[in-house]
Amino acid sequence: MKKWIYMMFAAAVPGCHRPAAQPLFGIGYTTELQTDFREMNWVNLLKMDFSRTLGKGFRIDLGSISIAKTRPERLIDDRQGFSNIEADNLPFSLSVAGLSFSRGASCLFAGLRNMNEDYFASPVTSLFTNSSCGIFPTIAANYPIANYPLSSLGIHYTHEKERWRIQASLYNGRGYNGFAADNFLFRFRPVSDGLFGITSLNYRNHGSSYHLGGVLYNGFHICEAEAEKRSLSGILWGYVEQRLTKGLYLLAQYSAVFPSDVWCHRFGGAGVVMRFRTAEAGFFSGCAVFSAEKEYASELTCRITFSDHVAIQPAVHLIQGACGFRQITLMRLNIAL
């Protein structure tokens, strides 16, 4: 599941090129009420981050997440996930734990990490609460990788200069969020878990941004029947955030899997976002193509910022797929310190 929360807490999240001459500590709390007008669910996410420079370009980065919700099951069984913060109850888990080394425009991180820290977290897509506006379902629905709330050991490289950013990561093929023997965060076993590689090229100009990337995965993918099989597959993805006028942005996304015999093999969507002085409003509609059905999901949302630390966000989701036609309304409160 892909998380706009990481953009909201950008000041607290360790970044490769942000100087940290003094220890930096940040806390982010998100609480969300969900309803389908028959049942309700209350979801809470607490995120903490710490960064400290060690000298000569080295820095230690630490991050944690805690999740609590009132219902063990989700309100609806949609494939894409209408809420990008909902997950099983998790008292405490590490999301980041490792060392960064920076020199010039480049940064290399080694340790525990998840993809939400680096990929699919651009400003326009980050407004929406549907998980597909984060990590595309062609990636998140097919592979048990280091995607929220899971992390895994790996390396991440970033080169950023002027308007360009190049990223590349190599992770253990499975993600974890615990400390038990069968769910150990610091496990690295590419023979049994496989390997997951992802890269992206980003270009920014005049308020617009363009993103192109690819994935190569060798390991186990999750099929519709919840069984697992060894596979080698690749994914191409891209999205555009085109600034039309001051405050008005057009968003377009597309992703495809090769070969196409995995569970979710295509995804595409488009939307529009309007920014005001203290608020943002947006509409997004997308379609994920699964092996047995298609799922259409649309979202209308706005985020109102009251200060540098507090924002509220109502959202309405319309979903048509295996779950039938369903409507979900949610209200989200975000606090960043």
Rank of each mutant, 00 (worst) to 15 (best):
K161D: 09
F120S: 06
R113G: 01
A105Q: 07
G207V: 13
Q167R: 11
S233A: 15
E162S: 12
L201T: 14
F186G: 02
L212T: 10
A140F: 09
S106P: 00
L153H: 03
I155H: 02
F188T: 07
N142C: 04
F179S: 01
F128D: 04
S233R: 13
S131N: 03
H211E: 02
I198W: 04
T125W: 03
T158E: 12
I135L: 09
K229T: 08
N147T: 14
F188K: 08
G194M: 04
H159T: 11
I155C: 06
L216V: 15
G104M: 07
G238K: 14
Y171S: 03
F136W: 09
S200M: 11
S192A: 14
L232A: 09
R187Q: 13
G197S: 13
G111E: 01
R243M: 09
S151A: 15
N114I: 06
S200N: 10
L185D: 00
W164C: 02
A168V: 15
I135D: 08
G214C: 10
L212F: 14
S126V: 08
G175M: 06
S102T: 13
G238V: 02
F196D: 10
S152F: 03
D182L: 07
I198K: 14
F186V: 11
G219L: 03
L232H: 11
Y217F: 15
F220Q: 15
I155M: 12
R174H: 06
F179T: 04
G134V: 04
S208T: 10
T138S: 05
Y203P: 04
D182E: 10
S209Y: 13
S132R: 07
G213H: 10
A180R: 11
K161Q: 12
Y171W: 08
S151C: 03
L185K: 06
G173C: 07
G207D: 08
P137T: 07
L195W: 05
T199K: 08
E117S: 05
N205L: 14
W237V: 00
Y148Q: 11
S122E: 12
N147Y: 03
E226N: 15
W237H: 14
H221D: 15
A146H: 00
N218L: 09
V124N: 03
N177V: 02
V124F: 01
A227I: 06
A168Y: 10
A227P: 10
G219D: 11
E241V: 06
